[in-house]
Amino acid sequence: MTFDPTGHLLLTPVDREAPLRVRRLRELGFGDRPDPAFDEFAHRLAEVTAAPYSMVNFIDENRQFFAGLHTPTGEYHGSDLTAVAAATGEVSRFMARDHGYCPHVVVRRKALVLEDVCDYPRFAGNPVVDEIGIRSYLGAPLIDRTGVALGTICVVDTEPRPWGRPGLETIKGLAAELMDQIHRREAGAM
């Protein structure tokens, strides 16, 4: 976390690992195109948590890319998630790095549970609250065998959700499961 010269809290944490992450994502061939296996995983994640939105998210220096995405309508449009129209539920696979909570999860390298983002001043001012209507978040980092945090898996809702410890354990277990799949995929490509 940093502050701007006017004394306002900047919501996006400093990410010193981003260049290493980008190199690793390129090695794996992730981060720039949708992947049906990741879409399937995001769909399963939504089913397990009963969340309307779920993502397999890879983060570079400037943006987030949802290589796996589940939405209530199954549609993805627009230039980024800020283009979401509440009435249509349209979602894109890209979002600015300063939107949402996944950049915090990647930098912290720990799961994050926000049952109601408005209860946390540090997170309540994030653009996804006003622009998209996000009220709850549950995410875990995807840390690969080299120790690089590649991105996250996460679920979000437009209503507060009592995720609690069961939600935390679920998201962490699913992140480990996806990393196993990624490692198997990498081993098969070698």
Rank of each mutant, 00 (worst) to 15 (best):
T170P: 05
N126Q: 12
V129A: 05
D157Q: 09
N126A: 12
M179Y: 12
A18S: 02
R63V: 08
T71W: 09
A189T: 14
A111S: 06
L69A: 04
H99L: 05
A87H: 06
C154F: 01
G164M: 05
F123S: 03
H99I: 13
I153W: 01
Y53P: 03
V155I: 12
T152E: 09
I143P: 03
V156A: 01
V128F: 00
L168R: 07
L69K: 01
G164W: 02
P127D: 11
A46Q: 04
V129H: 10
C118Y: 13
E61W: 08
L178S: 01
G151A: 01
S136C: 12
P5I: 08
F30I: 11
E27M: 03
T2N: 00
S92Y: 14
W163N: 04
L81M: 13
G139M: 05
K172E: 07
E27S: 13
T49P: 07
F65S: 00
D116Q: 08
T6H: 11
P34N: 10
S54C: 03
G188H: 15
L178Q: 06
Y101F: 14
T152Q: 06
G173L: 07
T71M: 10
I59L: 04
P72G: 03
D130W: 15
S79I: 10
T73G: 10
L10G: 04
V107W: 14
G68P: 02
L28P: 06
A111R: 09
A86S: 10
V148I: 12
E47M: 13
T73V: 11
V113I: 02
R23S: 05
G78N: 06
I134S: 05
M95E: 12
V14D: 07
E131W: 08
L10I: 09
P141D: 07
D119A: 11
E40K: 09
H70T: 12
V56E: 02
T82F: 00
A96Y: 15
R161M: 02
P162L: 14
V14K: 14
T152R: 04
C154D: 01
P36H: 12
Q181T: 12
A46H: 13
G29D: 10
V107Q: 02
A87Y: 11
T2F: 14
L142K: 09
